[in-house]
Design a protein around this nucleic acid. Structure first.
Ligand SMILES: Nc1ncnc2c1ncn2[C@@H]1O[C@H](COP(=O)(O)OP(=O)(O)OP(=O)(O)O)[C@@H](O)[C@H]1O
Length: 752
DNA sequence: CTGCATCAGATTTTT
DNA sequence: TCTGATGCAG
C-alpha cells in the first residue's frame, strides 16, 4: 500500500476512517477528490471490500471518468466493478433493473431537455392553455424544479393556487406526468425522483441496495439537490457515507443545489467525523491569495484556511483588449508564445468562460492562430438535428411506446405524412386508448381504409411501417453501426443531404450535417468496440445483455459531452481545452485563461440585482481561478457584440477584488487589427516575429486606488490614461485637491 | 403537403 | 447577427 505515502496526515485519516459517516470539508485543491480515490483503493486493496460494494458518485461524467481512471491506475482491472458514476447514471442502472415495481416497463425511454419542452408544449396545447401567457419553457423549468424537490403532481395540485400560473402548472404537470407514463418514458429529473420513489415505496428493494452498497462516497456534496440528498440518506442508512465538498464551490444553485445539505451533515449523522484539509497542492501562493480575496468578499460563507508550500509564482495577468476577436487572438498568441518559451504542451492550457455563447469567437481566433483546441460541452453533439433524427429512429426501434420519438421520425425525411395525417392517427389512437405507434401499426395492417386517407398518405404510412419492421428485425442481430447505415440508406435521409450538397448554393449546411453523421458513426463504433471487449461494467447488466443498441442509447442520453471519445481519439497530440467555468469544476490546468471578465457577462446580468446570485457568481469565479496551477490570465473586452448591437462593458468586479499587488495589468492590441476597408489582415501582413503579442504594461495606477505622494501625501486616483511610465493620472489629494501628474516624474506609491 | 419568406427571440450555468 | 417558428403560396 505504498500509495498511502502520497497523503498528508489529514488525508490519510480520511482514507482509513472507513466505518461510520465522514465529512471532508475543505477548500479548493486540497486533495478532496484524491481522498475519495485513494479511499476506494484502500477499501478494496487493504480491507478486502469487494469492489461491487462501493458506490462513488460524482457530479459530471467527466469527473466520473477521471476518477475511474485514477482508481484503475491504483488497483488495476478489478476496480472496474466499482460503481463510479453520476447520480443520474446510477439511477438509470437501478431503474433498469427495478422499475417494473413502479408500473413502468424496463425498456423506458429517457427524454432530454428539448423533448421535455416539446412534451410540455403538447400538454399545454391539449389543455388549451394560452402559450403566450404561460410560457412552456418556463413551465418545463418549474416542473423540473418541482421534481428535484420531490414534489409529485398530486402534492403540487394540493398546494397550488387555484388560478394563474400555479393552477396551469399543476394541470400541465399532472397531464405531463401521465403522458410520460403512457409513453413509458422518464425525463431527466424522473431518474432521480423515481429512484427515490422506488426506495420509499419498496423497502425490500431499498434494503437490497443498502446491503449491496456498503460504502458510499459523494464528491462535490455541496452541489447536491434535494432529490440527490434523499438518495444519499436512503442508501446510506448504514452510515458508511463519506461526503466531500467545499461550500465556496457551490455553483449549481440554479438547478436546486442546496448548500444546506452539506452544512446539515453533522446533524444528519450526529456521530459524524469531520476532517478539514488545509493544504492546497495545486496553485501558487499568488493564485491562492487572489482567489481567496475574491471569495472572501462573500458574506454568506464559512471562513476557512488554505495554505500552500508553493512559491509565490507569477502575477495574475489581467489583460484588456478591444473586442472579442482581439480577445481570441490574444489568447491564441499568448498560448503559442509561452508554449515555445516554457515547458508546456497545448493540453496544459484551458480557456474558461461563463457561457457557451462565447466559445464561437474564441474558437475562430484559436483556429486563425493555428492553436489546436477542443471544446467540451456546448451545442451538444447529440442535440443536433440530424443526430437527433437518427437517434429517434433507434429509439423508435428500441422503445415501442416512445411516441415522442416516433412522432419525430413519422415524417422525417418528408414522406407525405403531414399534420393532417398525424391528427387522424392521433384521433384513431385516442378513440382506442392506443399509443400513436400502436395506432399506426394497427391501422396499417387493417388496410388504412377507415380514416379517409389519400393514396399518397397511405403509401407513406405503409412504407414507414415496412421500414420499421425491417429495422427491428435487423436490430436483433446487426451491429449498431450497420443498422445506422441501413437506416440512412433506406429512409433516404442520406440521399436528401447529398442532394442538398450537390444542388444548393447552401450546400454547406448539408455538408456539415453529413460530417456530423460520420462523427456519429465513429462514436458508435468506438462504443461498440468497448462494449464488446468487456470494458467496464455496463455489460454485466442484464438489461443490456441482449442489446448493444439499448446500452448505446443510455450512453448517449447520459454522457452528453460526446467529443471526449471521438475527438480524443483523433487528436492525441493534445489540444487546448475550452469549456464553461461550470464544466471545469474539479479539473486543473497549469495555465488558465478566463475570458470575458466583464460586468454583465461575468457576473452575469441577471445576478447584478440579487445578492444570493452574485455570491454564486463569485464562487464560480473562485472555482475558475483555483483550477490554475501556475499561470492565470484574466481577459476583459471593452466592446462586445451582442445580438448585432454593441455593448461596452467595464471590467468585472471580480478583477477589482483581487489585491492589486498580485496583478499585472496589460493592455493588448494586435497591430494589424484592420486595414482601411475593415478587413482583417493579420495573417498576411505580419512577419512571424509580429505574431508575438504586443504587450504594453498598463500604468500601475488604476482608477480608484489610493496613492501616496512625497509632498502632497495621501490621495485617490480619479482618472488614469496612457500606458507604462507614460501614464498620466489625476489624483485627488486630501491636502491640496485634484492634481494632474505624469507617473514618470511624480514619485507616487500605492497605499493599502 | 412542401418550400420559402418573414419575424421574434436568443445566451447563464448541467444531468 | 443568427436561428427557429409560424404563415402563406404553389
Ligand atoms: N498529499 C498530496 N501530495 C501531493 N499532491 C497532492 C496531495 N493531495 C492532493 N494533491 C494534488 O493536488 C491537486 C488537487 O487535488 P484534488 O483534485 O483531489 O483536490 P480537490 O480538493 O478535489 O480540489 P477541488 O475541490 O478544487 O476540485 C491534484 O493535482 C492532486 O494530485
Amino acid at each position: 500500500m505504498g500509495f498511502l505515502n502520497d497523503l498528508n496526515p489529514q488525508q490519510l485519516e480520511g482514507v482509513i476512517y472507513t466505518q461510520g459517516p465522514l465529512l471532508i470539508l475543505a477548500g479548493a485543491g486540497s486533495g478532496k477528490t484524491r481522498v475519495i480515490t485513494y479511499r476506494i483503493a484502500y477499501l478494496i486493496g487493504q480491507q478486502g471490500v469487494p469492489p461491487e460494494q462501493i458506490l462513488a458518485v460524482t457530479f459530471t461524467n467527466k469527473a466520473a471518468e477521471e476518477m475511474k481512471n485514477r482508481v484503475l491506475e491504483l488497483l488495476g482491472d478489478r476496480a472496474r466493478k466499482v460503481w463510479i458514476s453520476t447520480f443520474h447514471s446510477a439511477s438509470v442502472r437501478i431503474l433498469r433493473r427495478e422499475i417494473q415495481s413502479l408500473g413502468y416497463g424496463q425498456d423506458f425511454a429517457i427524454l432530454d431537455t428539448a423533448d421535455q419542452i416539446r412534451l410540455v408544449k403538447e400538454c399545454a396545447r391539449e389543455l388549451k392553455i394560452n402559450e403566450e401567457l404561460y410560457d412552456p419553457k418556463e413551465m418545463a423549468r418549474r416542473i423540473s424544479e418541482l421534481k428535484n424537490r420531490l414534489i409529485s403532481p398530486q402534492a403540487y395540485a394540493r398546494e397550488a393556487q387555484a388560478f394563474g400560473m400555479e393552477d396551469k402548472l399543476a394541470k400541465v404537470y399532472s397531464y405531463y406526468q401521465s403522458l410520460l407514463k403512457r409513453y413509458n418514458s422518464l425525463d431527466f429529473d424522473d431518474l432521480l425522483m423515481m429512484t427515490v420513489h422506488l426506495f420509499e415505496t419498496h423497502p425490500e428493494v431499498l434494503h437490497s441496495y443498502q446491503r449491496r452498497f456498503q460504502h458510499m462516497m459523494i464528491d462535490e456534496y455541496q452541489d447536491t439537490n434535494h432529490a440527490q440528498y434523499r438518495l444519499v440518506r436512503l442508501l446510506g442508512e448504514h452510515g458508511n457515507v463519506c461526503v466531500v465538498g467545499d461550500d465556496d464551490q457551490s455553483i449549481y444553485g440554479f438547478r436546486g443545489a442546496d448548500l444546506g445539505n452539506i452544512l446539515r451533515f453533522e446533524k444528519d449523522y450526529p456521530q459524524a467525523r469531520v476532517i478539514r484539509l488545509e493544504q492546497n497542492y495545486r496553485s501558487t501562493q499568488n493564485i491562492l491569495d487572489a482567489a481567496g480575496a475574491v471569495v472572501g468578499k462573500n458574506q454568506k460563507r464559512k471562513a476557512k484556511r488554505l495554505w500552500t508550500q508553493k512559491p509565490k509564482g507569477a502575477h495574475i495577468q489581467v489583460c484588456q483588449v478591444a473586442d472579442e476577436e482581439a480577445e481570441a487572438h490574444y489568447i491564441g498568441k499568448t498560448i503559442k508564445q509561452i508554449r515555445v518559451n516554457g515547458k508546456w504542451s497545448y493540453a496544459d492550457f484551458a480557456v474558461l468562460y461563463r457561457a457557451h455563447a462565447q466559445s464561437r469567437a474564441l474558437e475562430e481566433g484559436l483556429r486563425d492562430e493555428g492553436v489546436p483546441y477542443r471544446i467540451v460541452g456546448g451545442l451538444r453533439f447529440y442535440e443536433r438535428k440530424e443526430i437527433k433524427d437518427l437517434l429517434a429512429y433507434l429509439k423508435a426501434i428500441v422503445y415501442p411506446e416512445d411516441d415522442l420519438s416516433f412522432k419525430r421520425i413519422l415524417n422525417v425525411p418528408p414522406r407525405g405524412i403531414g399534420s393532417g395525417t398525424v391528427e387522424k392517427l392521433e384521433g384513431y389512437a385516442k378513440a382506442r386508448g392506443f399509443s400513436l405507434f400502436q395506432a399506426f401499426t394497427e391501422s396499417v395492417s387493417a388496410g388504412l381504409d377507415q380514416m379517409g386517407l389519400t393514396y399518397a398518405q397511405r403509401r407513406g404510412l405503409t412504407n414507414l411501417a415496412g421500414l420499421l419492421e425491417e429495422f427491428k428485425r435487423l436490430a436483433a442481430n446487426t451491429s449498431v453501426a450497420e443498422l445506422l447505415e441501413i437506416i440512412l440508406k433506406k429512409t433516404g435521409y442520406e440521399q436528401i443531404l447529398q442532394q442538398e450538397v450537390a444542388e444548393r448554393a447552401s450546400g454547406e449546411e448539408g455538408r456539415s450535417r453529413l460530417e456530423n453523421i460520420r462523427e456519429l458513426f465513429s462514436a458508435v463504433r468506438i462504443f461498440e468496440e468497448r462494449f464488446n471487449c468487456q470494458d467496464g461494467i455496463m455489460k454485466d447488466e442484464t438489461y443490456y445483455k441482449h442489446s448493444v443498441l439499448a446500452a448505446f442509447l443510455d450512453h448517449v442520453t447520459l454522457v452528453t459531452d460526446s467529443d471526449q471519445e471521438t475527438q480524443g481519439a483523433t487528436s492525441g497530440k493534445g489540444a487546448v481545452l475550452m469549456m464553461t467555468l461550470h464544466g471545469a469544476k474539479g479539473l486543473e490546468f497549469p495555465v488558465v485563461f478566463m475570458a470575458g471578465m466583464e460586468e454583465g457577462l461575468f457576473p452575469h446580468q441577471s445576478a447584478l440585482t440579487d445578492t444570493g446570485q452574485m455570491e454564486e457568481e463569485r464562487r464560480l469565479c473562485y472555482v475558475g481561478m483555483t483550477r490554475t496551477r501556475e499561470m492565470l490570465y484574466m481577459v476583459h473586452v471593452e466592446k462586445r457584440r451582442l445580438y448585432g448591437s454593441v455593448q461596452w462593458n467595464s471590467p468585472s468586479r471580480f478583477i477589482e477584488e483581487i489585491p492589486i499587488e498580485l496583478v499585472k495589468e496589460v493592455v493588448w492590441s494586435d497591430r494589424s487589427v484592420r486595414s482601411v476597408d475593415g478587413q482583417s489582415v493579420s495573417k498576411i501582413a505580419l512577419s512571424p516575429i509580429d505574431h508575438l503579442p504586443q504587450l504594453q504594461e498598463a500604468g500601475p495606477f488604476k482608477k480608484g486606488i489610493q496613492v501616496k505622494h512625497p509632498v502632497w501625501g495621501i490621495g485617490r486616483v480619479q482618472e488614469a490614461e496612457g500606458q507604462g511610465e507614460d501614464q498620466r493620472v489625476v489624483v485627488h489629494f486630501k491636502t491640496v485637491g485634484p492634481k494632474k501628474l505624469a507617473v514618470k516624474y511624480a514619485r507616487l506609491e500605492k497605499v493599502g
